[in-house]
């Protein structure tokens, strides 16, 4: 028997039953599902870091890794923004409020929020990437005095596709954060009502000229093509490659460094990630 066996008394692969308590259907095929564990004690003690993920089981359909988008600084309800794209997520969309699922975790490294203390933070989210970034954003705002200037750039295809749109719009007037929003298109019914920019998320960098690169962390998440353009802007701003943090996605079957589906080079996305630095991405092949 190894020493580790004494340290860990619970099975890391065993999901716990959780109840679907609310579905936020604001964005088509990108619903935000709210869950509470059936075990009240677990529900109370379940804590996580921004950027971590859980393994979600839709009973009978299987399991998939989903990043936590609820603020780690507020316990009680787990929020998962789920893109309707595969077998498990499609099955999830067939569930109704009050249905049961299995959840285990949290897994992954999460954002290095302690290391980031005392620094300015530039958050950049594109499309579904807003989910993990939103968790970090609220963590920073809930611990506002520990961080310097906070700038949040968020883009999506249209006003209809912007995740957490109301929430983000309300940040536009908040004095302790600089929130910049962009959509590529404003549909007719939103004409005159959209307070943000019209354009790509990268267009928002024109407002971000004066940053203190030496004391800035950037946290970015979005689809693969998004990284290629956003990273260029961040490098132009002179932010060190190991202070540019990115959240990546991979196929996963275990979430605990065993099944090896999520490997990138010599790293496990579930253990060494899902938050990697741009420097990691430069070193490791096939990362984006």
């Amino acid at each position: 028997m190894l020493a580790e066996d004494f340290a860990v008394n619970s099975d890391p692969l065993k999901p716990h039953l959780a109840r679907l308590v609310h579905i936020d259907k604001s964005v088509k095929d990108r619903y935000v599902f709210h869950f509470r564990f059936e075990d009240p004690e677990l529900n109370e003690s379940f804590s996580y870091r921004p950027g971590q993920f859980v393994m979600l089981s839709v009973l009978g359909a299987g399991e998939a890794p989903i990043s936590l988008c609820s603020p780690a600084s507020r316990r009680g309800t787990i929020e998962l923004c789920v893109n309707r794209v595969g077998r498990v997520t499609n099955a999830l969309y067939r569930l109704r409020e009050n249905d049961l699922v299995g959840i285990r975790g949290p897994y992954g490294n999460g954002f290095p929020v302690e290391e980031m203390e005392g620094h300015d933070v530039l958050l950049v989210a594109g499309g579904i990437g807003a989910a993990p970034i939103r968790g970090l954003l609220w963590y920073l705002l809930d611990n506002r005095n520990k961080y310097g200037n906070i700038t949040f750039l968020c883009g999506s295809r249209s006003t209809k596709d912007m995740l957490f749109r109301e929430e983000f719009e309300s940040l536009l007037n908040r004095p302790d954060i600089r929130c910049l929003l962009a959509v590529e298109a404003v549909p007719e019914e939103d004409e005159g009502k959209w307070p943000g920019d019209v354009g790509m998320v990268t267009d928002l960098f024109k407002y971000v000229k004066e940053i203190d690169a030496e004391r800035t962390y950037a946290a970015v998440c979005g689809p693969p093509v998004f990284y290629k353009f956003v990273l260029r802007h961040l490098v132009d701003l002179n932010i060190d490659k190991d202070r540019i943090l990115m959240s990546l996605e991979r196929r996963m079957k275990c979430g605990v460094g065993k099944c090896a589906h999520c490997m990138i080079g010599d790293k496990y996305t579930c253990i060494h990630g899902p938050i990697f630095t741009y420097w990691d991405a430069m070193k490791l092949p096939e990362m984006i």
Partner: peptide, 30 residues
């Protein structure tokens, strides 16, 4: 093996899968 929901395959070519096997065995284990 590395195909994600939505259809993107991070290692669609056999050569990259073969290489990955050895990056795991050699580099990651080390």
């Amino acid at each position: 093996f590395a195909l994600v929901a939505g259809g993107h395959n991070f290692r669609a070519e056999r050569s990259t899968r073969f290489k990955m096997r050895f990056m795991h065995k050699i580099n990651s284990f080390k």
